[in-house]
Amino acid sequence: MRVLSILFLILGIILTAKAKINVVTTYPYIKSIVKEIAKDKVNISSLSDGKWDPHFVPERPSLAVKLRNADLLIINGAQLEIGWLPPLLKRANNRKILPGKAGFLDLSTLFELIQKPTTVSRAFGDVHPQGNPHFCLDPVKIPKMAEAIKEKLCILNPKNCSFYQENLKNFEKSWNKHLAKWNEKMKKLQGSSAFEYHRMFDYFFLRYKINVAGILEPFPGIPPTTSHLLELLKLAKSHKISFIAYAVYNPKDPVEFLSKKTGIKAFLLPHDVNSLPQVKDIYSLFDEIVRRLTE
């Protein structure tokens, strides 16, 4: 009997010692922010790996394994994941991380989104009724996300709360330093105009007062058509367009066509952590965007 109770005690110690909470994020950029706050106190993994179209991450059943073990799921929200996350959540059978539960955090609820349509119709393509969901590319919004993540971690893992608090403070300090650097560099693009493939970088451009003069997609989610590209060509003749921005998963051909015809430079910009090999964390995401635009 005594042996048994000792065994249970040891087992209990092993189990609690191993009981790091599991955090799963939908995108790598969220994982990177969690890492800044939690360091090695939690296990973190991301469902998407940065090279996919964030609207259509392949719903591989193995991703349900990550969700099955999760104590906390952090999503971008604003319907960016609507095309792939719901069936995975259904598959994972994990009640802790469903919307509304303590183990669920939707970052889009922190912000007022831009481009919220007043009427919603699919005649305008695959629109997001809640507004543009790519808010993570506004560097000013990152600390607010970090704070919300810290608060959530404190609820789920109170014994490390002061550690998270400390890391948040350091992160904010360091982030603001970087932000000042980016702001400085981006000044020279203020007031310029750009084309982009999809309304992916609008928050970034809005922050740095870059005007989006045209979108290569005729409608969200619909690849560029010739007639639409010709319209953009015409527009480029009458307006000064400084560059064309596109993401790693966007088909290159229409971008190159437009760039060749107009002589406007095309910039492949990282849209998420891990979308390019040199973009390893949330800092280098913006480092790289700024570098590519300003060099």
Partner: peptide, 10 residues
Amino acid sequence: VIGAHGAHAF
């Protein structure tokens, strides 16, 4: 398809 149709599983 029109309306709110859920995403499909793998």
